[in-house]
Amino acid sequence: MPEILSLAGVSRHFSGLQALRDVSLGIAGGEIVGLIGPNGAGKTTLVNTVCGVTPASAGTVTFAGRDITRLKPYQAARLGLARTFQIVQPFAEFSALDNVATAALFSQPGQSLKAARENAREHLAFVGLDGQADQPASTLTLAMRKRLELAKALAMKPKLLFLDEVNAGLNSAEVEKATALIRQLAAGGITIVMIEHLMKVVLNVCTRIVVLHNGELIADGAPRDVVRNPAVIDAYLGQQYAQRHGAHG
């Protein structure tokens, strides 16, 4: 598969703070990439930089053969770049259905509100929220809101989907469910980049792991190799994890 997203020498600083340092990365269509690293490593900044929320200070981002470095978030979204937020961002007063309808309505030109709502119903059913379609988003539980975010992202018909900690704050049954959904999406042809702290999920789902530390890319490769990489153990996983993992594997 050809590369769908590539970052070449991407840096981003917030005045004195260097959040991303010369990151180069290529992601092929169909991959499920796990983006890991300690808090403050620049994972979310990387997503924000690709999506146009905080444009790169240096370097270029190419998506599906097009330079998107300077695009605004809504322009990137219309090209097929969708994301979910670490802190869920629903339209609180809208029903679950209308939340998803917004995504269908604004990401594709010429959509009518009626068509968008019909479209939204399918995506709600896919994430298992069809029973809550008419409930205001503010009344949903956290797990439901996370799935709502996912439905919203899917309604944009994305080519590439960033999942920013979709499993954080969920119990293990809910994590199971979310993981199954992610696999299903990937099988449907969507390339996925997921920021995730639960190593079990990362190792279960991802075909490749990328590790950020202090804004730098310190490892990139197959999951089994990356978790044995001393730099990664040092920066993020810790010795205990390595020993436990070593004992089992």
């Binding site: 999506c51 929320v53 605004k72 978030p73 809504y74 979204a77 219309r78 994301r83 937020f85 961002q89 629903p90 339209f91 609180a92 007063e93 809208f94 917004t102 995504a103 309505l105 604004f106 990401s107 594709q108 009518s112 509100l113 919203k152 944009m156």
Partner: peptide, 23 residues
Amino acid sequence: KLGFGLACIRQNETAANMVGLNT
């Protein structure tokens, strides 16, 4: 659609931008 979009912006401008709305 304009009215729907304005309601989106009122509730959550970041999310509105992210779903492809030219805020």
